[in-house]
């Protein structure tokens, strides 16, 4: 069981002239089978938070790590853009991130490709896939290392509504099945309410604004009263943020 632990996290990017504060004193924890959405206006440090958790960036102050039984957990990361190696086939892209290259691993990679509906494309170059298909490879790649925790940075924001809805359902059922800890960044409050059991709201300047628990049964129908009410509540929180910002 993985534990995401963020303590007094601060991140400053040194800039020319003046520095940019991306995150300011952020703390929260999440562990076990939970789906945490992180929402907030553009530039509030959501991607930076995931990058630090993934070990791509280092914190300026504080700590942020994902552990399992005291040691570093295996983490899958779905980026805002697919980030596939353009010179490797889809299958080789899947294998690129694997710790070892056994037949068993290959078989596992194929299984996750099939799960996102791309088993026929395993030999294709990324340039031969549509944007949505590339993003699906990115998702399959994250799942295929059988991670303890999953980081997702607006994985569906570049897709059309129908594809996004299909993938959201797939993601939800994969989460239910595999019982992973998921950190899910999104702009879309509806998406957050539909998928998560917790929503963390960041505000401009990288401060944690609110940490909401959603106690609603799955599957959630947007037309359902309770779901709509929760969505309205989060949106109201956002409007207040806007008032503060301006």
């Amino acid at each position: 069981m993985a534990t995401v632990s963020v303590q007094n996290l601060r991140k400053v990017f040194p800039g020319e002239g003046r520095d940019v504060v991306a995150l300011e004193d952020v703390s929260f924890e999440a562990s076990g089978h939970t789906f945490v959405s992180i929402v907030g206006p553009s530039g509030c440090g959501k991607s930076t938070l995931l990058n630090i958790l993934a070990g791509v960036e280092t914190p300026t102050e504080g700590t942020a790590d994902i552990t399992k039984d005291g040691s570093r957990a295996r983490v899958g990361y779905v980026f805002q853009a697919p980030r596939l190696l353009p010179w490797r086939s889809v299958m080789d892209n899947m294998l690129f991130v694997q710790a070892e290259q056994t037949d068993q691993v290959r078989e596992r990679a194929s299984r996750y490709l099939a799960m996102v509906g791309l088993s026929e494309q395993h030999k294709a170059w990324p340039a031969q896939l549509s944007g949505g298909m590339q993003q699906r490879v990115g998702i399959a790649r994250a799942f295929s290392i059988e991670p303890d925790a999953l980081l997702m940075d607006e994985p569906f924001s570049h897709l059309d509504a129908i594809t996004a809805r299909g993938l959201r359902r797939e993601l939800h059922s994969m989460w239910m099945e595999t019982k992973k800890t998921v950190l899910f960044v999104t702009h879309d409050v509806g998406e957050a309410v539909e998928l998560s059991d917790r929503i963390v709201i960041l505000e401009k300047g990288g401060k944690l604004r609110k940490d909401l628990s959603l106690d609603l049964p799955f599957p959630r129908d947007p037309a359902d009263d309770k779901v709509a009410l929760t969505k309205a509540e989060v949106l109201r929180e956002f409007e207040e943020l806007d008032l503060i910002a301006t």
Partner: peptide
């Protein structure tokens, strides 16, 4: 850079990174 970051996130070893990126 974004592919190198991706490789870092997945803990891909240096030699694999050099060969593949």
């Amino acid at each position: 850079r974004e592919l190198m970051d991706m490789a870092t996130a997945y803990g891909v070893p240096r030699s694999t990174r050099i060969r593949n990126i």
